[in-house]
Design a binder for these strands. Structure first.
Lengths: 310, 310
DNA sequence: GCGTAGTGGTGCAGATTTTGCAGCGGTCGT
DNA sequence: ACGACCGCTGCAAAATCTGCACCACTACGC
């Protein structure tokens, strides 16, 4: 879009940290870029960047402006998608930021289902921890976010929540697999793998451990649930995860899960959210609606309640 | 602002109803305007106007676009005002849409008070009935609206409400002026002046009359409260108004007001509102905050309760 | 039935704006 | 002290936009 060109340039300068640097990435001369910046600052009546000896940095006015630019671009994108929608072209793009637990099973299944109905809708799925997911919404880098136990920012609007009881994950031949529900003290007797502290599951566990006297001392800490799940079973290791991040038990999978008694660890909440006050593009809004329905089914089914079908 | 020029042109074409007509008002050739429109439609991938033999008319896509343009311009204005604000310049502009009752006393007093603190803030006050006030908010033609008994649109966000009991207004020597509180049946015995049907006071009265058996047959109907208030008193006429639209009784004013018993006519609500989801410019936000405080004082004082000090 | 006045759209030449090159003065790191 | 990088500024070339004359078309008046 032509009339947003200059504003895009501002973002490029901000990313590059210098006018000359941004000019290179934009296939432009520093002259032209500098001229445009000066003209815009003139129109605005305030400098957008502070001039440093080694480049430029956003001024307070620039911070405001760049926020405006992002919101404006996102809104234009929504308008374009609405226009495409009323032309009958069911295309569009959805950008999702989500927690790690959603990546292996839930999101692929949901996106598959959606694209079966709307094949011309494209998707972008980015792993963002609970802090960065919310910041991505505000910066218009994601349309919707699906995060476990988020830090609730004021600028974020919750579309749906579903409780998720923490589950213990282990090999099928693990001694604990015999019990349908585990106490935290059961788990404490075996080698344990835990996600690192920025994750919601760990956050819930840390709270639970502070309240009770039981201490879980992790033998393995990782920021990858996939790694923790795949870590060889011979050690009889136990790891912890929420059910939405686990495969449905088909009775043959070498990995099984058992819920932790909720007297020990309370259920955490999985949040579906968007930026507050924003009108989503049609495709994103429709996909969010589908997710809401799916999450409600999850909540009614096996999500919050005890043992998974096994 | 340079990059919004083309979008302004779209609005001009929409207003004029034809490209050539808009070109005249913009001091441009129809050629240039036409070219820009075609280029924009190309970029957008859809026609913005339907071509009629006698001019042009907004297409559905154009409706969407023009709404986007307005919101974009309003948002840019907010950014500019925020930038001016952090430069220490306490200037800005506030656009208010309000009911007739607010015009003679309340709004002048409030704006005076505000400008005493912030002399460089300019104001625009427009009379809008309760339908048009809300549409003005959505069309970004007003920052805030102050209306009595509005039809509540979904896109409008309520900032404050204050109940207003309907008062009867009459000459000081009117027989009814002797009673501190009037029943509707008292009023029915005298010549009556009523506001026309689009006004909130009339709306409340019509409801009250439907519920009871008392019928007020107006001798004068007007869309001007000022006219009704000034209509010569010799006729011993009674008219109806809400207290915020009446002068404080200083004991000498030839016009006095008495509340109607709330068993007959329930109190209506005065709403302070803005467009839902919009972030107001600093000046408008501050003024809205002042109004909220003033309205709360009004509610605590003489607004909802019985007789005014007299 | 035909002219007229209005509409949006187009080719081409001139006006206007934007871009790029070369060079200035400055600060930092080596 | 030197080189590398930074933001910024004349001046000429390039690109873009504007305006005139003109076309095709439709509604309206007579």
């Amino acid at each position: 879009m032509k009339h947003l060109e200059t504003l895009d340039f501002i973002e490029a300068i901000n990313r590059a940290g210098s006018i000359r640097g941004a000019a290179d990435t934009l296939s432009l001369t520093s002259t032209a870029l500098n001229r445009r910046l000066l003209a815009l600052e003139e129109e605005l009546g305030a400098p957008i960047f502070e001039r440093l000896p080694r480049g430029v940095r956003l001024s307070p006015a620039g911070e405001l402006l760049i926020q405006h630019i992002r919101s404006q671009r996102a809104d234009l994108e929504r308008v374009r998608s609405q226009i495409a929608d009323l032309k009958g072209e069911r295309r569009g793009h959805v950008s999702v930021a989500c927690s790690q637990a959603l990546l292996p099973y839930f999101m692929p299944r949901e996106i598959n289902a959606y694209r079966a109905e709307h094949p011309r809708v494209t998707f972008e799925v980015n792993l963002r921890d609970r802090y960065r997911a919310e910041r991505a919404l505000v910066a218009h880098q994601a349309d919707i976010a699906l995060v476990f136990e988020p830090v609730r920012l004021a600028d974020v609007q919750v579309l749906a929540t579903v409780p998720q009881q923490v589950h213990a994950v282990m090999a099928r031949n693990h001694p604990l697999a015999a019990k349908p529900v585990l106490r935290l003290s059961d788990v404490a007797g075996y080698p344990i793998g835990l996600p690192s502290e920025e994750f919601g599951v760990r956050y819930l566990l840390d709270i639970a451990m502070r309240r009770s006297s039981i201490q879980l001392t992790p033998d393995i800490v990782s920021d990858s649930f996939e790694f923790l799940r795949c870590y060889p079973g011979p050690e009889m290791m136990v790891t912890l995860q929420i059910p939405i991040g686990l495969p449905p038990d088909d009775g043959r999978d070498p990995i099984v899960s058992r819920p932790i008694d909720r007297r020990d660890v309370p259920a955490g909440l999985l949040y579906l959210a968007q930026m507050r006050g924003r009108t989503l593009p049609v495709a994103a809004a429709n996909f969010a609606r589908q997710l809401t329905r799916s999450l409600e089914r999850t909540a009614a089914g096996d999500g919050a309640e005890g043992p998974r079908a096994s």
